[in-house]
Design a binder for these strands. Structure first.
Length: 189
DNA sequence: TAAAACTAAAAGG
DNA sequence: CCTTTTAGTTTTA
């Protein structure tokens, strides 16, 4: 796939959840990093470009174009699968990588808790560190970090804010109690 | 070493 | 039921 070296890209798109951004960057010979940016700020978008790495148009890259289409369909409620192969997981610290992989195994329509994810990666006391790892998730949505909630059903945090987290979960059919907590009926792990 | 998208327990409404 | 406080944890910058 002929593509220029070290290029990066960023673009905005309108979705049912508002204007979101998609950032894209080549991190190596054939390794790319792509992500959904729930709160696209001008600074965040421009951080993906520099004088030495001009922004390329999204549609110039077939993989990123496809990712953009899938994100769009996802945000319209369609159950779509994402290709983890385009993510630069190797650039993440080991623990975070394990957490992100565990997170990716949570099916649509299910949630898990920070605690149970910690258990699943062999660090049963590290619930808080799981939260930290997910807070730094470079690939929101593609790695569905919105499916991690607190042990008591409380939403926990989200880069795009709790309202967006809730909207994403509702999009996936997750049920909420009147208290605002998730009903813990379908908990993965 | 401090900070963080956590958790559990305790205290007081 | 709710809230705040406190303490115990692990990983990362």
């Amino acid at each position: 796939m002929a593509r220029s070296d070290g290029s990066q890209g960023a673009f905005l798109t309108e979705t049912p959840l508002g204007t979101v951004g998609l950032l894209w960057r080549e991190t190596g010979a054939d390794r790319r990093s792509s992500g959904f940016c729930p709160r696209p700020s001008p600074e965040r978008l421009s951080s993906g470009s520099s004088a030495t790495s001009p922004i390329r148009k999204l549609r110039d890259s077939p993989e990123v174009a496809e990712l953009g289409r899938r994100i769009d369909r996802f945000l319209h409620g369609e159950p779509v699968a994402f290709d983890l192969g385009i993510l630069a997981l190797a650039d993440c610290p080991g623990f975070q990588r394990e957490v992100l992989l565990a997170e990716s195994r949570i099916p649509r329509g299910w949630v898990s808790t920070y605690e149970r994810i910690a258990q699943s990666v062999g660090a049963p006391r590290a619930a808080r560190a799981v939260g930290t790892a997910l807070a730094q998730n470079p690939f929101p949505l593609v790695v569905p970090c919105h499916r991690a909630i607190r042990a008591d059903g409380d939403l926990g945090g989200f880069q795009g804010g709790r309202a967006m987290k809730r909207a994403l979960l509702e999009l996936e059919g997750i049920r909420f109690a009147a208290s605002g907590k998730v009903t813990l009926e379908k908990v993965w792990y």
